[in-house]
């Protein structure tokens, strides 16, 4: 396998990892604040649909992105109401959101566009195109670094770069700001936050809303960033759950989340190049097995084979003042 092929696989790993990473960071904010969120999947799905639909109607990818974020935020607020205000069961609320999203997207897509539950193909203006970074061509003659810059770093949609930027931002916000300190505290011991005179409810809502925004971007990336060109039924395909597995793998830390998502992205990228596997290990591997790899990995992680991951201690429990 030559360098170029490797770079191409890594390049698609990065692209595949992006929605996972955004969803994973979304989950990180929510769960660090003590709100478990299985509904990442559903939020991504409605965002993907509405982003594609609005982009298709208006011809603007940016309007699509905003619409996607709006759709995701709506469901985030529903989850917040259920689990913070009404102190319901967070898992059930999340599952309900996922079912709702799976159904509603197809129903609306069908009645709106009549194309069997999908949106029309998006034209060039209606989707986020790859950006060629400056000097990509001229630097490509530099050995090793040139091709890495051109093939791997350059040539992604703006959303990919945004996602990568959000990683250090999350780290900084979590560990270097007052908001981060309080957010981490509220997921560990909300009573400590409450007695310190800070509103637990407000903190948790802000976490859930951030989660909604990030899931919205994740969905928009899935449906409207190159090479994707529209929404299709169930297009998140369990990425919300994979993101949760990555979050556990990363033990709720942002940089590790990036690594975990890149690993999952790599596994998904392999699926696109079965010929490579055959070349490298000399055996033809069933395509279905390759497709299943990320999910197998998810099960392995969730079963706890990668060491003990301790979730935020107050996670999943509604906060009730005690005497």
């Amino acid at each position: 396998m030559d360098l170029l092929t490797l770079l191409q696989v890594l390049d698609s790993s990065v692209r595949m990892a992006t929605p996972l990473l955004l969803a994973c960071l979304a989950g990180l904010f929510s769960e660090r604040a003590g709100i478990f969120d299985i509904g990442l999947e559903g939020k991504m799905l409605v965002a993907a649909f509405l982003a594609a639909a609005m982009a298709s109607v208006t011809g603007s990818a940016w309007i699509g992105l905003l619409a996607g974020i709006g759709a995701s935020l709506t469901l985030a607020i529903v989850h917040g109401l259920a689990s913070i205000t009404f102190r319901g069961n967070q898992l059930i609320s999340g599952v309900a959101i996922n079912f709702f999203a799976a159904g509603i997207t197809v129903v609306i897509a069908q009645s709106w566009f009549g194309q069997g539950g999908r949106t029309p193909q998006l034209g060039d203006g209606a989707r986020f195109q790859s950006i060629t970074l400056p000097f990509a061509e001229s630097l490509s003659v530099v050995p090793l670094l040139g091709p890495i810059y051109k093939e791997l770093i350059s040539g992604h949609s703006i959303l990919v770069y945004i996602a990568m930027l959000i990683v250090p931002l999350t780290w900084w916000g979590l560990y270097r700001t007052r908001f981060g300190l309080r957010l981490r505290a509220v997921g560990e011991n909300p009573a400590a936050v409450d007695t310190a005179g800070i509103s637990v409810v407000r903190l948790r809502y802000s976490a859930v809303l951030i989660c909604g925004v990030l899931c919205g971007i994740a969905g928009a990336q899935l449906a409207t960033a190159e090479p994707a060109a529209g929404f299709i039924k169930d297009m998140t395909a369990g990425r919300g759950y994979i993101a949760l597995a990555a979050l556990i793998f990363a033990k709720w830390r942002p940089w590790y989340a990036l690594m975990a998502c890149l690993l999952f992205g790599f596994l998904q990228a392999l699926e696109l190049r079965p010929d490579l596997i055959t070349n490298v290990i000399g055996i033809k591997v069933q395509g279905q097995l390759l497709s299943a790899l990320p999910y197998i990995m998810t099960v392995v992680i969730l079963a706890g084979f990668v060491g003990k991951a301790i979730p935020p201690r107050a996670g999943g429990e509604p906060y009730v003042k005690e005497r």
Partner: peptide
């Protein structure tokens, strides 16, 4: 108030617990 069941964040340092809720400004 010192509660019977302490209201401390277990995996925070002493310093972080003292500061929580009484920070000066947005930066930590």
């Amino acid at each position: 108030m010192v509660f019977q069941h302490f209201k401390l964040v277990e995996n925070f340092t002493v310093l972080e617990n003292v500061v929580l809720g009484a920070e000066d400004g947005a930066m930590l």
